[in-house]
Write a protein that binds this DNA or RNA. Structure first.
Length: 440
RNA sequence: UCCUCAGUAGCUCAAUGGCAGAGCAUCCGGCUGUUAACCGGAGGGUUGUAGGUUCGAGUCCUACCUGAGGAGCCA
């Protein structure tokens, strides 16, 4: 058997006889000339099988192939200007591992399909070139984020998935029976990495989080992945610099390493090429003014009043005013989580920041400086009607060498959705979990 | 939880209250450069469920089920 290669690497074997191992993506035929298209997970290539050039059994084997049948193919690599990838394979032999039965054909044809049907067949949908490209971009984004923190002296510390109580108490949690005790799936690792930050200085976590909210929008999953850095002695200003640094690093990496995938997806990369630091920073007060002006001009339906949290249409409007992500900071403390440090200049504001992605994608990062004072934190826990005893360990962090510290969470799926310019986050993760989706 | 929309062949969709259809997929036949190939033919249906109006319902009415888009909430 000639040496095995991948379709992505096939250009390096021009003129050579190679073996590729994969699946039949499509078969076109023109009389005694067959054009099987193979995929192997790294890419797609068209084979050419003239009846006159191969043994009859090879021609018949290819002619009888059904979509997604698994095959090991031998052939000679030939450069061809007509081929989308620049190369074709003159097939000399085919070994069929498993032929898909014609009375039960591969359900996902090359034509258009509806969302529900595709989601019901997600285990097969991931094979299509566009979906595979998105998953490669996702992997690159995760790798880039981890490299970013690893290269800057952060230590990866994994928070627990099973937790005894609400981290923030506000959103709905998935309950789990833990040996007859009530436990919940984590909705954020933040509180735990505040502890490890006090131990290691600069830490981050990367893992799944769970929210039992009945959200039904293109931005929500019930199970999603977050990257969360937490840094001892960092201020809100430090945090904003870190956030814009992380985002530009990730975008640049995708442009460097996943450009062909972005093209497969149909992403207008020129918009990503404009992402440079520093990002515009506007205060909540300025954002309110922007929204009220927009309402006056008729660009926004609802009049925004100071004091409320930004709604989805509000975020969309603000982010549409900029070509790079924009950072909105210092929201009213009332609409934010209990653990956020008040602004010493204006205590009614929290030292927090949301990063809104451009092109209407909205919030991809939310972060804040954390309350350092024991007394204030106890007060806030009571104000939010949270059980103080559940936060005893968290309050200990303010009793034993409390320092200013800050951190944020970046939602991986929303970043993937923005970088790939997708309609919905359900395509950013291999098996999305949503309000009405637990299968497959 | 609320608002809006949809459910017809395996898939994507069409059908003025009057014989349930097309494209793709599958099967058979044709084509030596096809690019979601094309051309000819065949098979394929309890129109989401239950009731109602009507001579007659895929179509109109009621309830329910399922899904989608959005709001709220959030990353």
């Amino acid at each position: 058997m000639p040496s095995v290669t991948t379709i992505a690497e096939i250009g390096k074997h021009e003129g050579q006889l190679v073996t590729i191992r994969g699946w039949l993506y499509n078969l076109r035929e023109s009389g005694k000339l067959l054009f099987p298209i193979f995929r192997d997970g790294s890419g797609v290539i068209q084979g050419v099988v003239p009846k006159s050039a191969v043994p009859p059994e090879v021609f018949d084997a290819v002619k009888g192939l059904t979509q997604e049948s698994s095959v090991i193919v031998e052939g000679k690599v030939r450069a061809d200007k007509r081929a989308p990838g620049g190369h074709e394979l003159d097939v000399s032999n085919v070994q069929v591992l498993q032929r898909v039965a014609e009375n039960d054909p591969y359900p996902i044809s090359l034509k258009e399909h509806g969302v529900d049907f595709l989601m019901e067949h997600r285990h097969l949908w991931v094979r299509t070139p566009r979906q595979a490209a998105i998953l490669r971009v996702r992997a690159e984004i995760i790798k880039a984020a981890r490299d970013f923190f690893d290269e800057r002296g952060f230590t990866l510390t994994d928070p627990p998935i099973l937790t005894p109580a609400a981290c923030e108490g506000t959103t709905t949690l998935f309950p789990v029976d833990y040996f007859d005790e009530q436990a919940f799936l984590t909705q954020s690792g933040q509180l735990y990495i505040e502890a490890t930050a006090m131990a290691l200085g600069k830490v981050y976590s990367f893992g799944p989080t769970f929210r039992a909210e009945k959200s039904k929008t293109r931005r929500h999953l019930t199970e999603f992945w977050m990257v969360e850095p937490e840094i001892a002695y960092a201020t809100l200003e430090d945090l904003m610099e870190l956030a814009e640094g992380l985002i530009t690093f990730v975008v640049k990496r995708c442009l460097e390493r996943r450009r062909p995938d972005l093209q497969t997806i149909g992403r207008d990369v020129s918009k990503l090429e404009k992402i440079k630091t520093p990002f515009p920073r506007i205060t909540y007060d300025e954002a309110v003014k922007l929204l009220q002006d927009a309402h006056a001009k008729g660009a926004l339906e609802n009049k925004f009043e100071w004091g409320g949290d930004l709604g989805s249409p509000d975020e969309t409007y603000i982010s549409s005013q900029f070509e790079t992500p924009v950072m909105v900071h210092r929201y009213p403390a009332k609409v934010k989580a209990f653990y956020m440090e008040p602004d010493p200049q204006r205590p009614e504001l929290a030292l927090c920041v949301d990063v809104l992605a451009p092109e209407g994608y909205g919030e991809i990062i939310g972060g804040s400086q954390r309350t350092a004072s024991y007394e204030l934190l106890v007060k806030r826990i009571h104000e939010h009607n949270l059980p103080e005893e559940a936060f005893k360990w968290y309050l200990d962090l303010r009793k034993y060498g409390s320092v200013p510290h800050s951190g944020f969470g970046m939602g991986i799926e929303r970043v993937v959705s923005w970088i790939c310019s997708l309609e919905h986050v359900r395509e950013t993760i291999p098996f999305p979990r949503m309000l009405h989706r637990l299968y497959p």
